[in-house]
Design a protein around this nucleic acid. Structure first.
Lengths: 137, 137
DNA sequence: CTACTTGCAAATTGTTTGCAGACCT
DNA sequence: AGGTCTGCAAACAATTTGCAAGTAG
């Protein structure tokens, strides 16, 4: 996935805030809040403003380059590079890690809803709160 | 489910705001925001304050009497009387209705995560965005 | 009585917006 | 050059909190 490519294809400009947000999003292995992203971006270039980070993230969301998720009912939104919607988020109550689980479950659910209930699923969001193997002890 | 019973059991007081929020939550068939609940409560007793509605809702959440869900990444929280977590929310992009789907899917997912990945699921949240039968046309 | 609750208003938090200037292309 | 982007500060919306007064048990 190439940022410049994706932007130019739609006549959007390649700017410093966009490059930095992109880099931070990809270098971090986990989910980040807008504020966390902004902090890391600022370390690299203090001139970049928080509101640009927000604008950039929602642009990325529109372009399907990034994905926003609500991991808790309370928390702020968390961001990560885009991935298919059949990825389930496992949020550990012990260490706060967010694991990804990929399986057939979402696909099966989607099919079931369509065939048996006539509901056309466009986007499936599954968040499981619990304890990861290390913290389950 | 009896409100007075649930409150008294924990030495909590049965008050007007609590009774009214409880009633509104149960009389409405669908998901309501705190503001909507407050508006309906206020119609019955204008003295009840919005912040009491918030305090009451989070009390109900603690007591497992009500359930909060984020139906969109943007929206405010929506509330409904508590129900098991194997109920899936289907949010229709056409008519904004929120349907409930009850099935074995969540239970199966929970078992799978436990047996194959050692992840102990405590709470599963599934939200499916799409189109209900009427709006899928 | 007296601790639990509430109303009210002010404070927080997360996110968005208006606008003039900066900068990609 | 010219329209797209950004920084900044102010606006917003949802939710929370401090505190004195109210009330359930």
């Amino acid at each position: 996935m190439d940022l410049e490519e994706a932007l130019r294809r739609r006549d959007l400009r390649v700017t410093r805030p966009r490059q930095l947000v992109w880099a931070v999003l990809h270098e971090s292995g986990h989910h980040l809040t807008a504020a966390e992203i902004a902090a890391e971006v600022a370390r690299r270039d203090p001139a970049v403003n928080l509101s640009s980070v927000y604008r950039t993230l929602s642009l990325f969301a529109d372009l399907r380059l990034a994905r926003e998720s609500r991991l808790g009912a309370d928390d702020a939104s968390h961001w990560e590079p885009a991935h298919a919607d059949d990825v389930i988020h496992l949020v550990c109550a012990g260490c706060d890690a967010v694991l990804h689980h990929e399986g057939r479950e979402v696909e099966r659910l989607r099919t079931h809803l369509g065939e048996h209930h006539g509901f056309v699923a466009e986007w499936v969001d599954v968040v499981v709160h619990g304890r990861c193997p290390d913290c389950a002890a």
